[in-house]
Amino acid sequence: MSDKIRESFDKNPNKKAFIAFITAGDPDIESTEEFILKMADAGADIIEVGIPFSDPVAEGAVIQNANVRALKAGTTTDKVFEMVKRVREKSDVTLCFMTYANLVYHYGYDRFFAYCEELGISGVIIPDMPYEEKEEMESISLKYGVKYISMVAPTSEDRVKMIAKEAKGFIYVVSSMGVTGVRDNISTDLSPIISHIREVTDVPCAIGFGIKEPEQAKTMAGVSDGAIVGSAIVRIVEKYGKDAGQYIYDYVKSMKEAVLQA
């Protein structure tokens, strides 16, 4: 079976990927469809589509507010699936879902991942489902070829290797403590974590949380295999609303170029 996530890294000359996040349904579901296509055109290697949740406890204010706007606009899990279906008519960009355990649990694991398979969703990122709890979801997602993306944090210490050994797709390395959101500088030295991961697996590692500037993306992709950006993109949506498309395109393009120089 081909590994679409892996290919999204390997296709670039330096084998490093730029991963973009967007909250689905902010400001409305039609705009999200357009933004995803724009990000794909601008060179985003993987796009994480956030299914909005009422209580996104891993998110800082920017993405939390986007969740609120998306839910107010009537976004549901079904509407996100339907939107992705329309995206798939125009693009085969690598897609992952990022959401909270309760939404997937409530939809029904089998029903959720069967739909993911139909739409060619490559992976799922669930920040409130750690290693100890993943089996109930992963045992089902894998039946449908959807990878459960493992997260590693600055506090993971002795857990890094345990997590990395079972990781599939890519490893989401959380750059710093706390919640998502733009940070002026990322002080955690992530290279020890990356080298621990490398000892046990060749699954690519991408760093997320706090990245905004191309220079940061280049540095982070330099020590790993890629950079993940969410809040900075959502901020553009917050600022420009439905008209954010071109701004997102320009931003993603500049970030992708930076990652390619890493």
């Binding site: 920040p127 489902m129 750690p130 100890e132 944090a153 600055p154 506090t155 993971s156 997590i163 959380v174």
Partner: peptide, 18 residues
């Protein structure tokens, strides 16, 4: 760990697990 029947568990971010 921490189950009462099927209830309970540790559904929390990796950052807090340790």
């Amino acid at each position: 760990k921490g189950r009462f029947g099927e209830f309970g568990g540790q559904y929390i971010s990796e950052t807090l697990m340790n």
